[in-house]
Design a protein around this nucleic acid. Structure first.
Lengths: 148, 148
DNA sequence: TCCTGAATTTAGCATTGGCTAAACTTCAAT
DNA sequence: ATTGAAGTTTAGCCAATGCTAAATTCAGGA
């Protein structure tokens, strides 16, 4: 037993911590899905329909990546698409998009209320959005309400 | 050209947005590295040395996953390790750990100052930490200073 | 000294999410 | 009606990050 360490006093800590990390990890897949779905919703609202190319450009990925992701999102029941046609959202897809937009908006407004530039608020909210618990989101919303 | 969309009015938007997404994506690799390194630093400080098993338990991953990651971190110059021995941090590794801890602490205190429970602050700070720009971090630090 | 149990490593696999290049479809303009 | 450009799909690749199971190594106690 090389590198033996002192007796554990931190079992509970370890369990809690690993839970936090595990959550961060498992969130990850949903994040991607939400990013795609949210963007598709935006495109449909902005220009009437969402094409693979537009998604690819806005997300900064290759066309083929979008195609692959659309397959996964189809399997997940979030989008539908006839071959060579535009991307449509299912009911569930719209719900997820709405959900993402709501959080996104709250986080972004919160960062603005905190005194950050629009640029920074936009960029950081993109990264933070998915890692904020409901409790934290509520606190952010409260803060925005108070400081506006 | 199926699914033709209306003329673009959002070229700038698209570029900026894709930059944000790209940043979020590229951050990802560094996040993992920082998680591991930060934890290794904690273990060394807490119990005098960091063993693969302890890292695995705290991070909630399998042993083999840690071994693989250690190889990557070695290549990246962040840790060193003799076969079957404990994990050591390089100078650069310590710097990264310190950097991560600092951000982590600020974000966590910020969430507490915002009125969240310790539990939530701990979990959410874990997820948020890596996505916060320096500007936002400064704003958070300011907020903590004001509200304590 | 040897044995055994804990820790580490190796081997092999899966999934996610990227990429490029080439083939294919569709629409619009000639 | 044809054709060419734009958009979509396929095929095949890569790296990161996880896993399990089996093999290996080490250290402490008998």
């Amino acid at each position: 037993m090389p590198a033996r360490s002192p007796p554990r006093k931190t079992v509970k800590t370890a369990k809690l911590q690993s839970a936090a990390f595990r959550r961060t990890r498992s969130d990850h897949q949903k994040e991607r899905a939400e990013d795609y779905v949210e963007l598709i919703a935006d495109l449909i609202d902005e220009r009437g329909l969402a094409r693979g190319t537009d998604v690819a450009i806005r997300l900064g990925v290759a066309n083929a990546t979008v195609v692959k992701m659309m397959k996964r999102l189809c399997d997940a029941g979030l989008v539908t698409q006839e071959p060579y046609r535009e991307i449509l959202l299912t009911g569930e897809g719209w719900l997820l998009a709405q959900h993402g937009r709501r959080r996104h908006t709250i986080v972004e407004r919160f960062l603005l209320a905190l005194g950050l530039s629009e640029e920074t608020a936009r960029i950081d909210s993109e990264g933070i959005e998915h890692h904020v618990s409901d409790e934290t989101l509520k606190a952010m919303a409260r803060f925005v309400a108070r400081n506006s």
